[in-house]
Design a protein around this nucleic acid. Structure first.
Lengths: 279, 279
DNA sequence: ACCGAAATTTGGGATATGCAACATATGTCG
DNA sequence: CGACATATGTTGCATATCCCAAATTTCGGT
C-alpha cells in the first residue's frame, strides 16, 4: 500500500501542458502528429488525451482532439444524436410557426436547440428570449434576430441558466409565443426531469400568448418528477406522431391543438435493408 | 464553360451552412455525427467537407473537421494568434490571484477567456459572475465553481450579453475582485472599442473590492472611443511587459499596482522541430 | 543497489475512416 | 423525349485509429 499522492514525474505533465498549448494555436491536434513530436508512442498520447478529456480540458475526437473552449457538455452531444430525424423535422416544422416580427421565448433542451437551428436558418426578424446558451448562440447567428439571455446560475449539463433570477427576469417580458421542450408527456400532463427547469417553463408559459410544446413521440407516456403543465394548460403540442390511448383522450378532452409533422412516406426510413453501407 | 453561377440545389447548400453553423458552436464536428444528423451517407458529408476545406472554410481532420478560424471570435483582433503565448501566460498568472472561496466578476474578451481557461484548470471553489457565454461555459467545467450569467442582449461578435439590463444586474452583487480586459491602455487610462462594453466594465469595477485589468503589452499606448477608467482608477494592472514612457509615469504617479508575468526561460516551450528519429 | 509502482512500449484483433470506382437518382436543357 | 450534368448512394479495399492486455522500461524510495 504505497500512498503515492504526488507523482513528481514531470514528463507526463510536460506533455499534457504542451498538448494544451498546441491546442491554443490550432483548434485540432492529431494523435499521430503529437506522438512524433513528443517521440512517444501513439498509445501514450492517447492515454494523455483520455486524461485531459476526462478532466474536461479538451474534447477528444477520432484521431485527435480539439479545444474544450466553447463546447457543449458530453451528455448533450450524445443526446443530440438520438432521434435526430424526428427532432429535425419537429424543429423545422415548429420554426414555420414563427412569423416576421414575432417575439418568442425558448427554453433549453436538445429539441428546442433543433428548433433554434431551423429558426436561425430562415432569416426572420424576430425577438427571442432564452435561458439556453446554445440557443442564444444559434439564434444569434441570424443578424436580423434580437436575442436576449436571461440571468441565472449556469448549469453545465444543459448549458443553460436556472434559478429564481431566471424566472423573475422572464416575468418582466410578454411575448407572442413560447417554445418549450419537455422530458415527458402523459395524460397527467407535461413533466420535466431537470430540477429547476420546470419553474422556468412555467414562467415562460405565463408570459406568452401562445404556448407551443415541442415533444417527440418517444416522450409519450413517460412522466417525471416535476409537473410543468396539466393537459388543459398545453396550448399547442407539436410532435412527430399522433398520440394514442389515454394520452390522446386527455388531449382531445382538453381541446389541445395537436400538430403532427408531415410524414412524407418517402422520407420514412429505408434503413431496413443492410448495414453494409456506412450509415 | 458551364454557367454555374447559382446552383439552385438547396440541399447541398443547406448542409454546408449547417456544418459551418455547427462549427460555430463547437470546435469540432464528426463526419459520422453529421451524417446521422443530416440523414445522409458519410461519403456525402465527406464530399461536403472536402469542398469546404478547399474553400478554406474549415480544417479537415481525420474523422471530422474543425473550425478554420478557431473560436467564435473570427471578427476579433486578427493578431490574437500571435499573442497567444502572452495571453496564455497572462491568464495563468492572473488565475493565481484567485483563492478558494473568492467571488469574482469576469468580463468578455479573448484575454479574460484565457484567464477563465486557466482558472477552470485549477479547480478552486469560487463564485463567478460574467457576461460572456464562453467564459461561463469555461468556468462551468469546474464542478466546484458556481457561475452566474448576467442578462442582456446577445452580441454575436463577442458571444456576450450587453445592455442596461446587464449593468443593472451586476449592480446587485458585490464581489472580491473583477478581472477585466480592455482594448487599449494609455496615460489617459483604460479604453474600450466595443460599444456597450465600457459600461459593463465600469459596473463591474463599482461592485468589486479589487480591480484587476488584464492587458497585454500590445495594447499599450492605444486608445479607443470609450474610456473605461482613468489611471487612478486602475487597481492592479496585470500584463506581460513592464510599461515605459508616459504610461509608466502615469501609472507610477497614481500608485497603480503593476504585475508583470514572469518570463521564465524554462517556461518557454521546447517546440523546436528537433525530432529526428521516427516514433 | 534492489524493489515495486507507475509509465510506456509492444503486439494483435476489432472498428472506423478514407478513397476511388461505379451505380442510381434527379433535374436541366436542347 | 432523351442526352447530359450533378448529386448522392453503394461497394470493395487500403489505411488509420482504437482498445486491450501483457511485456518492458523508468523512476522514486528504502
Amino acid at each position: 500500500m504505497a500512498e503515492r499522492l504526488e507523482p513528481k514525474r514531470l514528463k507526463k505533465a510536460d506533455r499534457r501542458r504542451q498538448i494544451l498549448l498546441e491546442l491554443r494555436l490550432k483548434p485540432h491536434v492529431r494523435v499521430s502528429e503529437l506522438a512524433i513530436q513528443f517521440g512517444v508512442t501513439t498509445e501514450t498520447v492517447r492515454r494523455d488525451m483520455k486524461e485531459l478529456n476526462d478532466a474536461g480540458l479538451l474534447n477528444r475526437a477520432h484521431g485527435g482532439a480539439s479545444t474544450a473552449a466553447p463546447a457543449l457538455h458530453r451528455d448533450m452531444d450524445e443526446r443530440r444524436l438520438e432521434r435526430v430525424a424526428e427532432r429535425e423535422r419537429l424543429g423545422r416544422f415548429a420554426a414555420r410557426l414563427v412569423s416576421d416580427g414575432d417575439t418568442i421565448m425558448v427554453d433549453a433542451g436538445t429539441t428546442t436547440m433543433e428548433f433554434a437551428r431551423a429558426l436561425a436558418f430562415e432569416q426572420r426578424r424576430i425577438t427571442a428570449i432564452t435561458n439556453s446558451l446554445p440557443v442564444a448562440m444559434m439564434l444569434g447567428q441570424n443578424p436580423a434576430a434580437s436575442v436576449r439571455l436571461s440571468p441565472g446560475t449556469y448549469m453545465r449539463e444543459e448549458a443553460a441558466v436556472v434559478g429564481p433570477e431566471t424566472c423573475e427576469y422572464l416575468g418582466r417580458y410578454n411575448v407572442d409565443a413560447c417554445f418549450l421542450g419537455a422530458a415527458g408527456l402523459s395524460e397527467a400532463g407535461v413533466t420535466e426531469a431537470v430540477e429547476g427547469f420546470d419553474a422556468i417553463k412555467r414562467a415562460m408559459m405565463c408570459q406568452s400568448s401562445a404556448r407551443r410544446f415541442l415533444i417527440d413521440s418517444g416522450k409519450f407516456g413517460r412522466s417525471h418528477l416535476c409537473r410543468v403543465a396539466q393537459c388543459d394548460e398545453i396550448g399547442t403540442l407539436i410532435t412527430d406522431a399522433r398520440p394514442a390511448g389515454p394520452l390522446a383522450d386527455a388531449l382531445r378532452q382538453t381541446g389541445t391543438e395537436v400538430l403532427v409533422t408531415p410524414t412524407n412516406a418517402a422520407d420514412v426510413d429505408v434503413k431496413d435493408h443492410s448495414f453494409a453501407g456506412t450509415r
